[in-house]
């Protein structure tokens, strides 16, 4: 269970998040929608403990991600915006690095590699990969350690439509066994993957409820919630 209670965040004099409250239950797939600059990434960073809220509290399974950083991060797989990777490493080296940092046994590594379709590029340097493959490598690393909570921040940004569809299919498969938060500004992603929609605009949550049944419904909801 993820609980955000009256979270606010200020950077110098600018208020980026204002009074965000959210409860995410086990097994939910949340589509976290908002225009650019709405506060989606800041919210994701606060959930994983990378940033500290200016006020309010965060709990991941009753643990504060700042005070119990290691324990919380062992439960979370996080794919940051822009998918930062160590370009100087080979794919297998990078995955092994993540396995070692997460103290994972590496038992599931083979199935993760199969699931994300990166078998053919294991011995390639990450810098040589296409954008789509880089995204898959980032995804694979996120799944190491079999985390119960997965957070994706704009996972299909910059990908071609075919790759976007493949990544979404992967996310849908993952969501069957885990709690997933998908932060995105793409309505189609939410339509395809999420079971619940949260819309954030100018640092405030403007909608939190079930996903509309149609794409047009999602579009109308988004327009209303961001107007």
């Amino acid at each position: 269970m993820i609980v955000l209670d009256k979270i606010s965040k200020k950077f110098k004099n600018k208020t980026v998040l204002s009074d965000i409250s959210l409860k995410i239950g086990e097994g939910e797939i949340i589509g976290f929608l908002g225009p650019n600059g709405a506060g989606k990434t800041t919210t994701m960073r606060i959930i994983v403990g990378y940033l500290k809220p200016s006020s309010g509290t965060v709990e991941i399974n009753e643990q504060d991600p700042i005070k119990h950083r290691l324990s919380v991060l062992n439960q979370i797989g996080y794919l940051p915006e822009n998918n930062p990777l160590y370009y100087d490493m080979k794919v297998d080296e990078y995955l092994q690095f993540v396995v070692d940092i997460k103290n994972s046994t590496g038992d599931f590594l083979k199935s993760i590699i199969e699931e994300t379709g990166i078998n053919d590029v294991l011995s390639s340097k990450i810098e040589e990969l296409s954008r789509g493959y880089k995204q898959r490598v980032g995804l694979a690393a996120t799944l190491i350690g079999n985390p119960k909570i997965i957070i994706f921040d704009e996972p299909t940004s910059g990908l071609d439509p075919l790759e976007q569809e493949k990544i979404r299919d992967l996310i849908k498969k993952l969501g069957k066994r885990r709690t997933v938060i998908l932060s995105t500004h793409m309505l189609s992603e939410v339509a395809d993957v999420a079971t619940r929609v949260v819309v954030i605009n100018k640092g405030k949550i403007t909608y939190d409820g079930p996903k509309p049944k149609t794409d047009a419904g999602i579009e109308a909801l988004f327009k209303k919630a961001t107007s």
């Binding site: 940051p80 930062p84 370009y87 940092i101």
Partner: peptide, 14 residues
């Protein structure tokens, strides 16, 4: 610069 610091700090390591 490459933002891998966010990646590193989201892994379970102090």
């Amino acid at each position: 610069r490459t933002q891998t610091i966010e990646l590193l700090l989201s892994l379970p390591i102090e």
